[in-house]
């Protein structure tokens, strides 16, 4: 029969045996959510968590970020002792905080401290999306405000890496007010001539994007990072139209005037060093002889 020429070979789904499952312990391999390629986690980490095949920027934890950006051994952490309370008696809130503390070994969703980048001293705050999706409650706001105050005392630049779903719902309006607190701290710092650099990483949304993340003298972002105020689904339901594919990506924001530059992770240290260098130098003596 003619149709036999086109016969299809049947494919059956295979179920891995229990033993095969144990062959590859969890965490050894990572699947890229963009290109679906599976690679060794070790290799991925070595490549600063940038997908080896498609360049997708996987989220980085705060300690990883600090390790790859600051000069070795220069980081000194601030305010590890601040812990969240449960102002609204929100059910399960404390348990969840406890869980994330356990999982991440961090006291909250932001790590702050000081160190140097290629020799340039900075105060740095790095948010960690593994901790309650990097959401901002009282502790995050306080830690960031205190870090800005330290930058002010020391007259060194302030760099913030954002990664956050927004304000922390469980702390209600107190979270909202952290936007005002951090922005006010930045205003004082800026008036004093302080340099503010914001690097938005995936994802930076809601109250965080609507406060310190957008207030840099330089606003940078990592490629492909989701950045926006309201969530995509909320907007789609409100305006009842489909949004473009690249809506709220770093590249979209660059095109719409919100970013100074989109900087791939591998170039970040050099680019930041250049900006810090230009801001620190006064030019040689030949410019200031008069």
């Amino acid at each position: 029969m003619l149709k036999d020429l086109f016969s299809k070979k049947k494919k059956y789904a295979t179920i891995p045996s229990e033993q095969a499952k144990q062959d590859v312990p969890e965490g050894i391999m990572t699947k890229c959510p963009k290109c679906k390629k599976i690679m060794y986690t070790k290799e991925l980490v070595k490549n600063l968590r940038v997908c080896i095949s498609c360049g997708y920027h996987h989220p980085m934890s705060a300690p990883e970020r600090i390790a790859c950006l600051l000069d070795e051994g220069t980081f000194h952490e601030y305010d590890r002792h601040l812990l969240s309370k449960n102002p609204l008696d929100f059910p399960q809130y404390m348990e969840k905080i406890e869980e994330d503390r356990e999982k991440t070994k961090l006291n909250e969703a932001v790590v702050t401290g000081e160190g140097t980048i290629n020799g340039f001293p900075v105060v740095i705050a790095v948010m960690d999306s593994r901790f309650r999706m990097g959401s901002m409650g009282s502790v995050v706001g306080e830690k960031i405000a205190r870090a800005i105050e330290r930058a002010m005392e020391k007259s060194v630049p302030f760099i913030i890496f954002t990664a956050s779903g927004g304000a922390r719902m469980q702390e209600g309006v107190l979270s909202l007010m952290q936007m005002a607190k951090t922005s006010a701290a930045l205003k004082l710092f800026s008036e004093q001539g302080g340099l503010i650099i914001s690097v938005m990483t995936h994802p930076t949304t809601g109250g965080v994007s609507a406060s310190f993340a957008s207030l840099g003298d330089y606003n940078f972002a990592e490629p492909g990072a989701l950045i926006g105020f309201a969530g995509r689904r909320v907007i789609e339901q409100t305006v009842r139209e489909e949004l473009p594919d690249d809506f709220q990506t770093a590249e979209f924001l660059l095109k719409h005037g919100q970013l100074d530059a989109v900087i791939p992770r591998h170039e970040l240290k050099d680019k930041l060093t250049n900006v810090l260098d230009i801001h620190q130098s006064r030019g040689g003596d030949e410019w200031h002889t008069n």
Binding site: S214, Y218, N219, L254, K255, H256, G257, Q258, L259, D260, A261
Partner: peptide
Amino acid sequence: CHGDRCFGD
């Protein structure tokens, strides 16, 4: 540096 922080680059 890109953008006017309002509408576009």
